[in-house]
Write a protein that binds this DNA or RNA. Structure first.
Lengths: 212, 212
DNA sequence: TCCCCGGTGGCACTCAGTGTCAATAAGTTG
DNA sequence: CAACTTATTGACACTGAGTGCCACCGGGGA
């Protein structure tokens, strides 16, 4: 009514079309499999033209990638928000828990999407590429938390990599068990395994830093 | 002359065409960038038809993927060949060292390929997808070495993931430094970071295994 | 009212990837 | 030597991905 939010009215139709497309795509992909769905089908199901699909997504894979992109920012934000006195293993566990908690909140829908991604080579590849970006971002945050330069010390990148390995292992087990295993329990157990390396501060300075 | 090797004469023409194609592709890709090279160009440079290219490789990406595929088997074989009494951190370091040593042997060529892969999103994605397969294979070998079931214990998969994170970090640093950093030194430092988790046998049984 | 502008659909084009078929070369058997 | 078999290849056709271009529509402001 009053004061225009300045990002108003017309923009939300755009968001609506995007949601429509994402919904239609995820529905069809999970149902028929990645290769069996054409972009014409997705566009038709969302009620737009094929050309319009490409104004929102760069490719069929991109629908899923965009669905995941927000996660990286969330993990990074959570890590940055954790108190600096928290040991890396605890801070990283909380950070990685953010997207996992999102899965735990919508088990049905999330499980279908996770299984689609993990079982479709093209999507798995894109998912892992995304994670490589997350790893770099997390390494930067970790570096500033600990006062280490990610371009000099190997620790930040490796710690981020270990945390994401744990993330992958959890999702893998959850997917393979069709959602039967408990996400919180899996996460705790996975981080228990990697924690000795994440928190081995005494060894870090001597072993991982450039000698001299 | 005598005894036909049974994998004879005609087969090596096939190998020759494959090599020709791989060579032409890597040359063009490194020179012009991934997207700027069409398959017609590659085929023409190798002196065959476009259709023939697809009889050897499933896609442009597949040229690089096949170039990498052997590595996974090599890592796995080396891990299986390490003495069982060797701690996981040492055995995994030797296993991961195999492909890194190959890079160290041909620094010029290897660096060009590594940089091409790490800097081309589509190739990075495929590379990481390959690694996911390596991770599963290494987890299986690790499991049998330690008498752990990879479908019950999280440790084998996580240990393999950590080792491959180290592998990635080493390649990344090597690539970013244009080959200036020493591969052996990087590898040792990376494994020094993750070793505390790989060798924390005492904590493993209590923390990572299914409770009870 | 007229104009400007973001979003859209339609069209045409390049390139990736696949199936099919006919021609060729090489190796085999009589 | 001739007929036959098998593998490899080039040529053609076709579907689908992805992109550039342009004309069209609807709303908001001068």
């Amino acid at each position: 009514m009053s004061a225009k939010p300045e990002v108003t009215m017309a923009q939300r139709k755009r968001q609506l079309v995007s949601d429509e497309l994402t919904e239609a795509a995820l529905q069809l992909l999970a149902l028929k499999g990645f290769d069996a769905v054409t972009i014409d089908e997705i566009a038709a199901a969302a009620g737009v033209s094929r050309r319009t699909f490409f104004r929102y997504f760069a490719s069929k894979e991109d629908v899923v990638v965009q669905f995941l992109t927000g996660m990286g920012a969330d993990i990074q934000a959570e890590l940055a928000a954790r108190p600096v006195e928290e040991p890396p293993s605890v801070a990283l566990r909380h950070a990685v828990w953010v997207p996992i908690a999102a899965c735990a909140d919508h088990p049905g829908r999330a499980l279908r999407v996770v299984q689609l991604i993990l079982r479709t080579p093209a999507l798995l590849a894109r998912f892992l590429e995304r994670q490589a970006q997350w790893r770099d971002d997390l390494a930067a945050v970790l570096g500033s938390r600990l006062g280490l330069d990610p371009d000099t010390d190997l620790y930040p990148r490796l710690a981020a990599g270990m945390a994401l390995s744990a993330f992958d292992a959890v999702l893998q087990r959850w997917s393979d068990s069709d959602g039967a295993e408990d996400l919180a329990d899996l996460t705790d157990r996975a981080f228990a395994v990697i924690a000795p390396a994440l928190d081995a501060v005494e060894g870090r300075a001597a072993d991982a830093r450039e000698p001299r």
